[in-house]
Simulated scan of single mutants.
Amino acid sequence: KEKLQHLLKRIEKLPLNAKHNFKVQAIYGFLINELKTLVINKKIDLIIMGTKGATGLKSVSIGSNTGNVITKVPCNVMAVPENACYENIQEIGFPSDLNIAYDIKVLETIKDIILLKRSAIRLLYISGANETLSQNQTKVKNFILDYFKDNVCTYHNITGKNIDESVQCFTESRNLNMVIMVAKNLNFLERILFRPTVEKISYHTKVPFLVIHE
């Protein structure tokens, strides 16, 4: 409780922000259960969490905390790596396997973020060697591109064996400021964020990522 009060005092010293109020609360219980209850009772729209082990060998497990929140709590989650520095959000990456059609509300949420910062969005598909899009994937791709036709939106197809490494390379090569993922396709999401053998996050860039739930 003392640390929370200290944090609140640090926040109060920041430039005045009339759009937000800050409250602190210490709760005893299991993280996931308590968060689920808070999301419902407080009508929470977004959970923001810091992640440790954002770079290199310092791969501290967040599977038990942020990873579980992302996959088990039905609320949008923004994860901010510990070494992230705030930058104006000019480019946003949107990795997708294009297998599942997205709900309009999800795309509206992404568009709201784009319009807020006048950002460009980069739709990313990672393919295997000599792989082509199926008819359904082409349909989903065209639907997304059509939805964002009034925004700066481009499609990128790169070849790679490991989805997590491909997303990371694309993020770094394009100097993306944020990555957006959709929790609807949980299998694809987990392939980006987690190594299959251990519950450790494998996403090691300094770029925040937002996971949107329907």
Rank of each mutant, 00 (worst) to 15 (best):
K3Q: 14
Q5W: 07
H6P: 12
H6K: 13
L8H: 13
L16K: 15
A18K: 15
H20F: 12
H20G: 12
V24N: 12
V24C: 11
V24M: 10
I27G: 04
Y28S: 10
L31W: 03
N33C: 05
K36R: 13
L38P: 03
L38H: 07
K43W: 00
I44L: 08
I47W: 04
I47M: 05
G50T: 10
G50M: 02
K52M: 11
G53I: 04
A54Q: 05
A54T: 11
G56C: 05
L57W: 03
G63N: 07
G63W: 00
S64G: 12
S64P: 10
N65M: 06
N68A: 13
V69T: 07
P74E: 08
V77T: 15
C85N: 14
Q90W: 00
S96P: 08
D97A: 04
A101R: 13
D103N: 14
I104R: 12
K105P: 08
K105Q: 12
K105T: 11
L107Q: 04
E108L: 12
T109N: 08
K111D: 10
D112E: 14
I114K: 01
L115C: 06
Y125E: 13
S127I: 11
N130Y: 13
N130A: 07
T132P: 09
Q137S: 07
T138F: 02
K139G: 00
K141P: 05
F148M: 06
K149M: 07
N151W: 00
T154S: 14
Y155T: 04
Y155R: 02
H156N: 11
K161A: 09
E165I: 13
V167Y: 00
V167S: 01
Q168S: 14
T171L: 00
S173L: 07
M181E: 05
V182W: 01
L186F: 09
R191D: 10
I192C: 03
F194T: 06
F194R: 03
F194E: 05
R195T: 07
K200S: 10
K200G: 08
V207K: 03
E214W: 09
